[in-house]
């Protein structure tokens, strides 16, 4: 069973729809037992870093997730804000501490003359092969964000994209993946990405 973490930040509906389309058994939940029972965990999220992390911490979900993901080694996917929260710290809405699972910082895109947020379809450039990127036919994905996670370790970066500057869009460390684009909204390529995540054990 896949559990999509419900922490009041999100487009949980569209992530659930996409996974159900792939035939997965999915639950949107903030319940401790559900999180423990899950095979895979997804932290979606649109919203601001400050609100996201405080919701996770105040609800006690941050501790349960830490238990399941860091110690239990369950496959974990953070999408958009869910990826940004993996950082040690984030700059959005004042400086806030993140989960710190992937060392680095969540910073604003230096977009130059381009408008922010970065909204729309953009190419990704694969930097390092990973099972999560297998069989993806088109490298164009849907983005909607103004911030991104910059990991300290370059080896954590699997793919980047470019909008004013080049920034990481797929990151990985052990059983933890983070993705800045919205696979649930990126049609075929996005569904393939989610399918690849479901294959992780």
């Amino acid at each position: 069973m896949i559990v999509i973490i419900d922490y009041g930040m999100g487009n949980t509906g569209s992530v659930k729809n996409a996974l159900e389309f792939l035939g997965a058994d999915v639950l949107v939940s903030n319940n401790r037992d559900d999180v423990k029972m899950s095979s895979h965990l997804i932290l979606p999220g649109v919203g601001s870093f400050g609100d996201g992390i405080s919701n996770l911490k105040e609800s006690g979900l941050a501790n349960i997730l830490e238990e399941e993901v860091l110690r239990g080694r369950k496959p974990f996917l953070g999408i958009c804000l869910g990826m940004q929260l993996l950082a040690d710290e984030g700059d959005e809405g004042g400086v806030n501490k993140g989960l710190g699972w992937i060392h680095g910082r969540t910073v604003k895109i230096r977009a130059g003359i381009n408008k922010l947020p970065h909204i729309g379809w953009n190419n990704i450039k694969v930097k390092s092969d990973n099972k999560i990127l297998d069989n993806i036919a088109s490298n164009v994905f849907y983005f909607v964000h103004s911030y991104y996670l910059q990991p300290d370790a370059e080896k954590c970066v699997l793919a980047t994209s470019e909008y004013g500057e080049e920034f990481p869009v797929v990151v990985n460390k052990d059983n933890i993946w983070g993705v800045q684009f919205h696979p649930e909204k990126s049609q075929k390529s996005g569904l393939q990405f989610l399918k690849n995540f479901l294959k992780q054990r």
């Binding site: 009041g8 999100g10 487009n11 949980t12 509906g13 569209s14 659930k16 729809n17 649109v46 909607v144 919205h182 909204k185």
Partner: peptide, 11 residues
């Protein structure tokens, strides 16, 4: 807004 996001809106 929250309801629409939960239903499946992205924006």
């Amino acid at each position: 807004i929250n309801l629409l996001l939960r239903i499946g809106a992205d924006k």
